[in-house]
């Protein structure tokens, strides 16, 4: 073992410090969920009261249920649209793909608050002025709002995966007299599957996380969890909020672990997983 230089030691310290910084508020929230006091900020004593309180508050349960329901529908929709678009970009590129990627880029760089203030009058216009009932439905409005960014993310991920795998397999399948639809179903889709699953789970987490668009487009009666927390911010944060967050953190961890396992099975290295997950 050679002598470690001062710069290596400094980098080690820095790296660990950054990780601690990244986990600090999450740890604070987890600890706060065991606070028996009335307010989140003021520590009283250790106990499981907050977790019990969840069961007695239908508003919290409803909000979480709305979030999960919206998340599943939005993720399904975004995965369907994004997968098809990603396959088209990877396997049938052309001038159109250039414009389409431009649109996806625009979707991903537009600040959420702009999407939010734009969608609100638009949905009011579609739902009330044009009288299309679907756009007055709380869940439908949330799904629309949450799906925009996710469609772009899934498209990137699926495209990146298929571009990495050249088209020879599809050509071979066509040479062996498989019809285009059969090739699509038996070759292209299985090839894209890890990216599709990763995209689905990422869309789900993105939807669970979405606060800004949800706060604008939500209809009273179908308030998703983050919007519930946002309104609780004004009336005083109680430990129940930390308790639900702790439970949801566990759920997210399970989802992330699933993504990692799926990608690793498909033979990706840690770096490739990171690239897939950040959409690079």
């Amino acid at each position: 073992m050679k002598q470690r230089s001062w710069s290596d030691v400094a980098l080690n310290v820095w790296g660990v410090a950054v990780l601690v910084f990244l986990f600090l508020p999450i740890l604070v929230i987890i600890v706060s969920s065991f606070n028996t006091g009335r307010l989140l900020v003021a520590w009283d004593s250790f106990g499981f009261d907050a977790f019990g309180a969840i069961l007695t508050k239908p508003a919290i349960q409803d909000a979480v249920m709305v979030s999960i329901q919206t998340g599943l529908i939005a993720a399904l929709l975004a995965t369907l649209l994004g997968t098809l678009a990603g396959i088209a970009m990877a396997r049938h590129p052309g001038r159109w793909a250039f414009w389409f990627i431009g649109l996806l880029l625009l979707v991903s760089v537009t600040p959420e608050i702009v999407d939010a203030v734009a969608l609100l009058p638009w949905l009011v216009f579609l739902g009330q002025d044009l009288g299309i009932g679907l756009f007055n439905d709380g869940i439908a409005r949330l799904v629309i709002g949450h799906s925009l960014f996710s469609v772009a993310v899934v498209s990137y991920i699926v495209r990146a995966r298929l571009i990495g795998l050249e088209g020879q397999l599809e050509e071979a399948s066509a040479d062996l007299y498989a019809r285009p639809l059969t090739t699509f179903r038996r070759v292209t889709l299985p090839l894209a599957m890890p990216a599709v699953l990763a995209g689905f789970l990422l869309s789900f987490t993105l939807s669970l996380d979405n606060t800004v668009i949800a706060a604008f487009v939500q209809v009273s009666g179908t308030t998703p969890w983050p919007v519930y927390v946002l309104s609780a911010l004004r009336s005083g944060l109680r430990p129940e909020i930390a308790a639900v967050s702790t439970i949801m953190l566990l759920l997210t961890l399970v989802a992330l672990a699933l993504v990692a396992v799926v990608l690793r099975r498909a033979g990706d290295s840690a770096t490739q997983i990171a690239r897939t997950m950040t959409g690079n």
Binding site: I29, T211, P226, L233, S245, M248
Partner: peptide
């Protein structure tokens, strides 16, 4: 959750 982290 972004909001919850910030509340932290």
């Amino acid at each position: 959750n972004f909001l919850v982290r910030t509340i932290g």
